[in-house]
Design a protein around this nucleic acid. Sequence first.
DNA 1: ACCTGAACACCGTTCAAGT
DNA 2: ACCTGAACACCGTTCAAGT
Lengths: 224, 224
Amino acid sequence: MADKAGGRRGRRAQGQGAEARPDEPILTRERIAATAVDMLDAKGLDGLTMRGLAEALGSGVMSLYWHVENKEAVFDLALDTVLEYRGPTALQDWRGDIVHVLEDWRATMLRHPWSALLLPRRALGPNILVRLERLSACLSAGGVADVDVNAAIWSLWNYVMGATVTRASFGPSDADREASQERLAELGTLYPSIGRSGLLLDDDWDGTFRRGLDFLLDGIAPKR
Amino acid sequence: MADKAGGRRGRRAQGQGAEARPDEPILTRERIAATAVDMLDAKGLDGLTMRGLAEALGSGVMSLYWHVENKEAVFDLALDTVLEYRGPTALQDWRGDIVHVLEDWRATMLRHPWSALLLPRRALGPNILVRLERLSACLSAGGVADVDVNAAIWSLWNYVMGATVTRASFGPSDADREASQERLAELGTLYPSIGRSGLLLDDDWDGTFRRGLDFLLDGIAPKR
DNA sequence: ACCTGAACACCGTTCAAGT
DNA sequence: ACCTGAACACCGTTCAAGT
């Protein structure tokens, strides 16, 4: 596709979205992060290679290693770039606030499906801590007892995590959907209960997410 | 380590655990699956290579491809092998039953941490459907309305999924733990709420799992 | 039907240099 | 301080054969 041997080195990357201002150095952690995100969005988790990344940035492969320890570090960088939280800061209705935080969380991750696969295996970056902090504050404001707060936070975390990871993986690919469609006849007899309820045919992901979240919040809400 | 060039071909694999009975063919889907599981247990997700798998089985690399489409298929095989559910079939206390199903689910996955990373990106194998079916039956038996059953199942699924994936990844490696320990001083000032509650210091994973699950089940339980 | 080695088109990263 | 190409030690998989 692109010219291979030609002297495109030192040139600016084009079309990959992360354009540098003319006076900026070609290689910075920020530009590396931004380009990695673009590449992950475009080609998925396995689509990111150091070689490809370098080419998109118009540099030699090994130049990256001056700015970045290794490929893992690139993943970390990309993940934290994507997870930045800018949300309203005013607290009002604690339950509504929590729903907002979690729906926003899920939405950002689904905008970059690779992030869902990535997050669980990385350490907690600052941008995730911000979100957890927010959650914690909401729960306390809602009157959840101190002893319950941690369990509540983790259960909410688990819930978004699970929902997002699931949705991100066999959500969009309809090959799976068709496969389950076909299997549905035998399903009804082999697994009567989930066959009857049409569990695998439900494609209202957003609605189901919201309804399950309500279950969880019902359980978390302080009893009176 | 092992002799490289020596004629070990056609010999049985030793020490890898998946010993063949002498009259059995060297390569079967079952032996491939079992050996893959052993290898994944021992060396993690990235530790499984077709070349290594073949060597452990005492065959040439390409011989595997007669029994198996590609590496993805090996993952599928290994995952489904591990997820087999043998649990009591008698229904009694619906809530206790659900807790049992989920704790067993989580426990089996944590016994093979790679499975937690793998499951979300694969289609639902038969052994997972068995567990979902079980869940569905429990919920109905518990009086959960038909309209709520699907949302309830998915929320439970999300919960185990998230909890297991999280625990499997930054659970056992204590490098992360130490890192967060160090960051705790600044944490208190940057993130007062989660600093105060010691969210990141909580290491009672089992207890937290159980308590969060109770929140969820409280919300799911039919109101009266 | 089942197994094989050689070869291809990739990887991430080390190293010894260049400016 | 920043960038580089060549080389190393791997990958998964195609292909044309062997029995």
